[in-house]
Simulated assay, not measured.
Amino acid sequence: MASYFLTHAEVVIDPAVPIESWTLSGVGRVRAGAAHHSAWDPGITRIVSSAERKAIETAEVLGQTVGVVPEVDRRLGEIDRSATGYLPPEEFDAVVVRFFDRLDESVRGWERAVDAQTRIVAAVRSLTADGDVTLVSHGAVGALLLADLRGVPIDRALDQPGMGSVITFDPRAWRALSGWTRVTP
């Protein structure tokens, strides 16, 4: 069997709302509703999400579909970017590029990539220690996890192709069984 790392689906971006409180958009709800096709199988009895609203909602939609009540674990959170909060898309992308290029630095006060990778790897190892799980989290930490699962350096090229994407992995062998796949309704 395998475990899954699913990123939250599309969100309603509202600069006036804290990022961790953003909710799923209509498209995001549809994508989350189809996640059971690629981010779950009948042997999985646990779904664990980040504490951010968009991840919780994605996990809840998946959980309702498969009959599993999701748990929440703060260690699955996205990189801490509270120092800047919302950034317009062009500015955000430039900071993300620097985040992936300067792994040992805190770019504009954001959590360092090396620290976020250590956190997400430890969380995933802990959460999968007793069996396979579907984890619902975020794209940047997913890229950091994928690098570790593949035993390669952190690189932005490992980032998800879009919100609502999934990686399949074997936590016992600690290796990725797939790259990113978009959840399709």
Rank of each mutant, 00 (worst) to 15 (best):
S49P: 08
S178P: 03
G28L: 01
E91L: 15
Q64F: 06
Q160K: 07
D80G: 09
I167A: 04
A2W: 06
S137R: 03
H138Q: 01
D155I: 08
R156Q: 13
L24H: 03
E57R: 06
G131W: 03
F100W: 05
S25I: 07
G151T: 05
V96F: 01
V69T: 15
R29K: 15
M163P: 02
T7I: 06
G131M: 05
R175V: 00
F99Q: 00
L135Y: 12
E52N: 13
R46H: 09
L87M: 12
E57S: 05
E10F: 01
T45W: 00
P161E: 06
T128I: 11
A16N: 15
V133M: 14
G151Y: 04
V152Q: 13
W40D: 10
P89F: 03
A39F: 08
I19L: 14
A59P: 04
W180A: 11
D130T: 14
D41F: 12
E91I: 15
V69R: 15
G43D: 13
F5T: 08
G151S: 08
R175W: 00
E111Q: 00
Q117N: 12
I79D: 10
G109F: 00
V121P: 12
T181W: 02
G67W: 05
W40K: 10
H36N: 08
T58K: 01
G131L: 00
I120A: 14
A147K: 05
P42S: 00
V114R: 13
S49V: 07
D73C: 08
I47E: 12
A16K: 15
S21D: 10
R119P: 13
R156M: 13
F92I: 03
I154P: 04
L146T: 13
P185K: 02
L127N: 11
E52Y: 15
P89I: 05
G131K: 01
A32G: 02
V183T: 03
E90L: 07
R119K: 12
V183W: 03
V11D: 05
P88R: 02
L144V: 04
M1Y: 06
I56V: 15
D41I: 09
G164Q: 01
V136D: 06
V11H: 05
A32D: 02
R29V: 14
P185D: 03
G109Q: 03
H8S: 00
E71I: 15
D170F: 00
F169H: 12
V61Q: 02
Q64H: 12
V183F: 02
D104T: 06
V136I: 09
A157C: 10
V48F: 09
Q160T: 06
I44Y: 01
V124Q: 09
S165P: 04
R150L: 15
E60A: 11
S137Y: 02
T7S: 08
A113Y: 00
A143S: 08
T128H: 07
V17A: 14
R81H: 11
L149K: 09
D80W: 09
V66D: 01
V124F: 10
R172F: 00
H37L: 15
V107Q: 03
I56L: 12
V114N: 14
V107E: 01
D80Y: 10
A143N: 03
M1K: 07
V124H: 08
D148G: 05
A147F: 08
S165L: 01
E20G: 05
Q64N: 14
V166T: 06
V96P: 03
R75M: 02
P161G: 06
L103C: 01
D41A: 14
D148L: 04
D41Y: 11
P153H: 14
V72W: 06
A34I: 11
T184H: 02
A2T: 12
R98P: 09
T84C: 05
